[in-house]
């Protein structure tokens, strides 16, 4: 089973997480055209590559962003929404003394 690093709880098996879909910036609803809005809600950046995604750690109720290569399924970084990727270093997961991924 794949491992994923929750920025709050550390490295966990995938079974503890829910996939929340691609992270998408919402266009301004007041200024976007109907077509732009329809495109936002329906279309996806779906070619393989490094994507920003929402993931949810169920036992702790933590949403976070994972940057993942959807071709190799390799996770490059995980962090809380709005926190710079290196912000993860400030939290010390306590589950394991030693983290591995």
């Amino acid at each position: 089973m794949k491992l994923l690093n929750c920025p709050m709880n550390g490295t966990r098996p995938l079974s503890e997480f829910l996939f929340g879909g691609e992270f998408r910036e919402m266009p301004n609803p007041d200024t976007s055209s109907d077509l732009e809005w329809a495109s936002y809600v329906h279309y996806r950046d779906n070619a393989p590559g490094v994507k920003k995604e929402w993931w949810y750690h169920s036992p702790s109720g933590t949403w976070f962003i994972a940057e993942r290569n959807t071709l190799s399924d390799e996770v490059l970084a995980t962090y809380l929404y709005g926190k710079a990727p290196d912000a993860t270093k400030t939290t010390k997961p306590r589950a394991k003394k030693e983290q591995s991924e």
């Binding site: 709880n9 503890e16 306590r94 589950a95 003394k97």
Partner: peptide, 17 residues
């Protein structure tokens, strides 16, 4: 699925799993 052996689970750790 967590490694809960003493060597992996700190004595003051809380694990939400």
């Amino acid at each position: 699925v967590m490694d809960l052996r003493d060597s992996a689970l700190a004595s003051n750790a809380v694990v939400m799993t």
